[in-house]
Amino acid sequence: MQVKLKYKDRLGELLVMPHISPRSRLIVVRRIARICNSQWVETREYFRELIKEAELGLPFTTAKLKKIDAMRSEARSQHKATSYQIGQWIYENDDLLTKLYGFDGVCEVLEVNPVHRPEVLEYAEDQHRAIAAVAFIAGMEESASRQSGRQRPDYKDGPLFNVFMDMMIKAMKENRASMPDPTAPGGPLYGLPSYTMQADGSMVMNTPAVTVHSADGSKVVASKPGRRNGPVTPSKVATLFANNENVSRHEGGQT
């Protein structure tokens, strides 16, 4: 750990040197991100073991557990602060680095296998920000060493991917009102059941809204969670219209 700390300090000195190129600066930033991720994995495991040991002595170790938890929270805050700084630098320089070195030049620094680069372009919505496209959108950072043709990983990973993930989580927590509803039509979670917590703490699944179509127009009917008479079904709401033509699940009023 001490060696890594000294190495990270040296990288920090290199980062502020005025004569290094933007490409070299990106390499240094990526190396710092890698060390920070590695240190956080070790730190997290260290506190996990401390907590496990202290829990064996409950209730006599309650104060000790609170102290360990406070130390873990402080370590987490420091790690996140460093991760946010790295992410902010990448966000501010992604467009510049892409212009200076091109898409392939950024892929070389991020160790993207040439075979995988067309896939990155397929995923990338903004090709002017190659770092975000490679590391976060496509998850192809270090694909030359981590991803073979037959053994592709089941999840995205990499030093810069974890930085982007921390940035996204931070943005979601701080700007909840600006986030679109993921369960709304067109959202990634549309169609999944949702639940409402009752006063006694139990969870009741919300029944889907249904749209009744008739010659007189369409009407959306939804039931309340835990309704005594049971959920609203197409057969029940069909009686709402004398000339019922079609009853379907609500999908924006379309049949």
Score class of each variant (00 low, 15 high):
residue 143 S to G: 01
residue 246 N to L: 15
residue 67 K to D: 10
residue 69 D to N: 11
residue 185 P to V: 14
residue 196 T to M: 13
residue 206 N to G: 02
residue 191 G to N: 08
residue 171 A to E: 05
residue 218 S to A: 12
residue 81 A to F: 02
residue 14 L to A: 06
residue 36 C to T: 12
residue 152 R to K: 13
residue 247 V to M: 04
residue 129 R to M: 14
residue 188 P to L: 06
residue 98 T to Y: 09
residue 199 A to P: 02
residue 201 G to R: 07
residue 32 I to C: 05
residue 20 I to C: 03
residue 19 H to S: 15
residue 40 W to C: 09
residue 2 Q to K: 13
residue 115 V to T: 12
residue 157 D to Q: 14
residue 242 A to L: 12
residue 219 K to S: 11
residue 207 T to A: 15
residue 47 F to D: 05
residue 205 M to G: 09
residue 66 K to R: 06
residue 67 K to G: 00
residue 164 F to W: 11
residue 176 R to E: 09
residue 107 C to T: 08
residue 173 K to G: 04
residue 80 K to A: 04
residue 20 I to T: 09
residue 29 V to D: 00
residue 110 L to T: 06
residue 87 G to N: 01
residue 119 E to S: 13
residue 81 A to T: 07
residue 40 W to R: 15
residue 254 Q to Y: 07
residue 102 G to Q: 07
residue 128 H to P: 01
residue 72 R to W: 13
residue 42 E to D: 13
residue 1 M to S: 10
residue 226 G to P: 01
residue 231 P to I: 07
residue 201 G to P: 05
residue 79 H to T: 05
residue 4 K to E: 13
residue 8 K to F: 09
residue 8 K to H: 08
residue 173 K to W: 02
residue 100 L to P: 00
residue 102 G to W: 01
residue 99 K to W: 00
residue 140 M to K: 15
residue 35 I to M: 12
residue 117 R to Y: 09
residue 84 Y to W: 02
residue 236 K to A: 09
residue 139 G to E: 02
residue 98 T to G: 03
